[in-house]
Design a binder for these strands. Structure first.
Lengths: 221, 221
DNA sequence: ATTCTAATAAATATCGATATTTTTTAGACT
DNA sequence: AGTCTAAAAAATATCGATATTTATTAGAAT
């Protein structure tokens, strides 16, 4: 592997590159919900062949970001309030579960990871919003990372992304929510480190449901 | 669509055909856990081109039945006791959740579906084991089908399949479990129809955990 | 004997072309 | 006008060939 592979954003395979780009575009709403995803168009967009595009789209069905209808192609997964609320609720349930498992199995290493990812997230607010987004996801996943159940964590990560997608879809005009997000994160961290499962869970779910309520209003429009 | 399409088992697209066949082979253990899945070999096996095979494998990644490693192909998902137990436990949690939601939202239509799928399952015991397996899954999914959360149901279906896979992997030599499965199903049905969530859940989880205990022993070998 | 390296073989990933299917369009009929 | 039907266009799905990458083998050096 050349040095370039590791430092640049360039992906190893065309399929992976297409997967990442398409995923990003769907999460950001650049490919609107429900939109038909024509191979030729994406081919042009991604400057690659039909095979990588099709394979990437097939992979994205795993993530519930793309729907595949046999013999009539792919489309960006539809979005609606019912689905949003389903995602939000299921996410709360599963994260609550994973959080409690993580805390129950707490180790010094896990604690340290929490502190670290939280710190990085705090610092990243000064930087580009994308850097913060990344750090934000990393922190939230770190909380669940000690659950001992990779499948559960996978589901949580999936639901996290789906939720972010709705945030991006809804955040059309209105300004970013003016809440003290930093304080909320701090409280979650504190409770988790203290192994206070009930408080950590309560904070976490409040954190999600507040954002959810805000987004729910946006989606009505 | 010709008449043949609807009556024969022949799939509409090569990709879907490959997907179904491969899925079946992995669930049945014909493609052993961890095994490398070489495109050329599968191409020969399924008598189709490389593209449908690759696409089918990409789709199977969703179901956690296939692992994809960039630039070095696909392999059947590994199987081990830890994963089995994780699947079993998560399945119990999620099905409990879905069952309670289903019961909470009970409708006459749902009840009737339960009765119907249960009846079909009972009848199917006389027929081929594969017919029973299909009916068994249909019954279990019908129980959860009223949860109002398609995503949750999707996860449950996924975990169901993964569990079945372990059953098939473990059932190498030993005879089929000699329990009164029919009675267990009957009890679940009865409790569900009566909207007794606690009893239904208890029955369901006992049903799963008994099978799980049995399979766990097999997997030690 | 063991590790390193170059050459070879094998397998994956990708492309471009073509067959198949679906969708659209335009004309005929009621 | 509103359907139905046939032809044309567009898009999907698939194939066969090739480029790229990884894995294997055999020989050289320590």
């Amino acid at each position: 592997m050349s040095i370039i592979d590791e430092t640049s954003g360039k992906e190893a395979s065309a399929t992976r590159g297409a997967y990442m780009t398409l995923r990003d575009m769907i999460l950001k709403g650049e490919l609107p919900a429900g939109q038909k995803l024509k191979i030729e168009r994406l081919r042009g967009l991604l400057k690659t062949g039909a095979s990588p595009v099709r394979e990437a789209l097939s992979l994205l069905t795993s993530d519930m970001l793309v729907e595949r209808i046999d013999q009539r192609g792919f489309r960006a997964a539809p979005a609606n309030k019912a689905n949003f609320e389903e995602i939000l609720e299921l996410r709360c349930t599963l994260e609550d579960l994973a959080l409690r498992k993580s805390i129950a199995a707490a180790t010094p290493q896990w604690e340290e990871q929490l502190i670290l990812t939280h710190h990085r997230m705090c610092k990243s607010v000064e930087q580009d919003i994308l850097v913060f987004e990344e750090a934000h996801k990393t922190f939230h996943m770190a909380i669940l990372a000690n659950s001992g159940s990779p499948v559960l964590e996978r589901y949580c990560a999936q639901l996290y992304d789906l939720n972010i997608r709705y945030r991006n879809l809804a955040a059309g005009g209105s300004k970013y929510q003016r809440r003290d997000i930093a304080a909320e994160h701090g409280e979650i961290l504190e409770a988790a480190v203290q192994c206070d499962a009930d408080r950590a869970s309560a904070c976490l779910l409040k954190h999600y449901r507040l954002t959810g309520k805000y987004l729910g209003r946006e989606l009505d429009a």
